[in-house]
Simulated scan of single mutants.
Amino acid sequence: MAVLFRDFITMEEISLDRSDQQPVNEKPVKNRNRSAGPSRGRITFWVIVSILGFFILLAASALFYVWNGLRPASQGEARQVELKKGMSPFKFAETLEAEGIIRDSFLFKYYLRLKDEGPRFQAGVYALNPGMDKDTIITVLNAGETLKKETIRFTIPEGFTIEQIADTLSKAGYVDKEAFLKLADTDRSWGDAEAARGIPKDKPSLKHRLEGYLFPETYELEKDSQPEAIIIRMLMELDHKLDSLPENWEEPMLERGIDFHALMTIASLVEREVVVDEERPIVAGIIYNRLDKGMPLQIDASVQYALPAPKERLLEEDTKVDSPYNTYRVKGMPPGPIASPSLKSIEAALFPEDTDYLYYVTKKDGSHEHLFGRTLKEHNRNIAKSKESAKQGGANNGN
C-alpha cells in the first residue's frame, strides 16, 4: 500500500511538472510569446514620419539658403567695380560677390536667368554699395549709371596741321610732341578707323602720314589717355563725320577719277585758302578747273606748308622752294593734305561749284572774301582792285 502511494505521488509530481509545458503539437496560445518591442505598424508609421521630417527640414534649409543668399549683403561703404567690355553678366556676378556687394554669386546668376536680365548690362565703372537690393543693382547696370571718369578736354581748330595739333596737345601736357609725331607717321592700321586706310603706302614724299586725317573738333577723353588712343579717337571722328554725308557720296569722287586721299588733299587746300563758307565750293571748282587744264595750282597755302616755318606774308623767292608741296613749281596736287579740313571743305571738294573761273585773289578789305576771274587779264584787274581796297582801308583806319 505504501509502495503504491509513493508511486502515485511520484506520478502526480511528474504530471504536475509536465503541465507547465506546452504540448508539441498543440497550437500556441495567442499573445503568449509576443516580443516586448513596438508593433510592425507602429514602426512603419515612425519611419514615414522621419522621412517626411527629413524632407521638410531639407526644404526648409534650401529655402533658407536661397533667402539668405539673395537678401542684401551687410551695409558698407560704396565700392568701385568695373564691368569690362565683353565680360559676361555671370562673370561679373562673381566680381560682385568678391567685392561684398552681393552674398552669393551662384544664386544671383540664377536670379538673372529667371528674370531674363544681364544682356542689357552696360560696361563701365560703377559705385555700388554693399547692402543694395538685387533689383536695384540690376536697374543700375541696365541704365549704365557709371562713374564719370576724370577726363581731358582739348579743341583742334579747323585747318590745323598735324604739327600744330601735336604742339597743342604737348602744351596741355597730354603728349610728348616728338613722340606723337613719330607715332602719327607710322605706317600701320589704327583700330577700326576706316578713312585712314585710304592713305597710299607708296607715298614717300608725304611730310606727315596722317596729315589731314585727324579731324578738327573738341574732344573729351579719359585722363591719361595714351597718344595712340588720342589718334584713334580723332581718326574715328573723321569716319563719323563722313557718315553724315549724303548717301553714295563717293560717286562724284569716282566720276572725277580721284581717290579719297586726293579728295582730302583738295579739301585741305580749300580749308587753308577760304574763310567764307559760301566760297568753298567756288574755290574747289577752280582747283578742279586748273587740274583739268594742266595748270599749276599756285596755292600760297601749299607753299607755307612746304616752308620750315609759316610766314605772315609770302615773298616771290618763297614760291621757288624745292618741295613736292610747292604748287607753284609742281603741276598737279601735292602728295597729300596740308591740314585738317572741316566737313564743309570736304563737302566742297565733293560737290564743287561748276564755274569757268581759273583765278581768285583775296580782298584786302578785311572781309576775307575773294575776287574771282576767268582770265589772267581779269585776274590782274582783281589784284589791282584788291590793292586799292587795302589802301582805302588803311586811309579809313587813319581817319
Results as ranks from 00 to 15, higher is better:
Glu194Thr: 14
Lys344Phe: 02
Asn396Trp: 12
Asp202Ser: 14
Arg280Phe: 05
Leu371Ala: 06
Lys223Tyr: 03
Thr44Gly: 06
Lys364Pro: 00
Pro341Tyr: 01
Phe90Trp: 07
Arg18Val: 09
Thr319Lys: 08
Arg280Gln: 03
Arg6Asn: 07
Ala59Ile: 15
Ala2Met: 10
Asn129His: 12
Phe108Pro: 10
Met132Leu: 15
Glu255Leu: 11
Pro337Met: 04
Glu163Phe: 01
Gln122Ala: 10
Gln298Ala: 06
Val66Gln: 07
Lys109Gly: 11
Pro130Glu: 11
Arg256Gln: 12
Tyr328Cys: 07
Ile156Tyr: 07
Met87Asn: 02
Asn248Asp: 15
Glu194Cys: 00
Glu220Lys: 15
Ile101Ser: 07
Gln226Gly: 02
Thr319Ser: 00
Pro216Ala: 15
Gly393Trp: 08
Leu63Glu: 01
Glu13Leu: 08
Tyr360Asp: 01
Ala193Ser: 14
Phe154Pro: 09
Pro281Val: 02
Ala78Trp: 11
Ala390Asn: 02
Thr95His: 03
Ala127Lys: 12
Ala73Val: 02
Thr44Met: 10
Asn25Asp: 15
Pro157Tyr: 03
Leu315Thr: 00
Glu194Trp: 01
Lys207Asn: 08
Arg40Cys: 01
Leu52Thr: 14
Tyr219Lys: 05
Glu247Asn: 12
Gly257Asp: 00
Ala390Lys: 12
Ser323Thr: 05
Gly285Met: 09
Ser389His: 06
Glu194Ala: 14
Glu150Thr: 15
Tyr325Thr: 08
Asp202Tyr: 07
Glu312Leu: 09
Gly144Arg: 13
Lys177Trp: 04
Glu316Leu: 10
Ile299Tyr: 04
Asp356Val: 01
Asp187Lys: 15
Glu250Ser: 05
Leu183Trp: 15
Ile137Asp: 00
Ser367Gly: 07
Pro246Val: 04
Ile231Gln: 07
Lys85Gly: 00
Ser244Glu: 13
Asp167Leu: 05
Glu279Thr: 08
Asp318Asn: 13
Asn33Ser: 03
Ile287Trp: 05
His368Ala: 13
Ala59Cys: 12
Thr375Asn: 10
Gln80Ile: 13
Asp187Pro: 00
Glu178Gly: 08
Leu206Phe: 03
Leu57Tyr: 09
Ser389Glu: 12
Asp224Thr: 01
Glu13Asn: 10
Ile9Asp: 10
Asn142Lys: 14
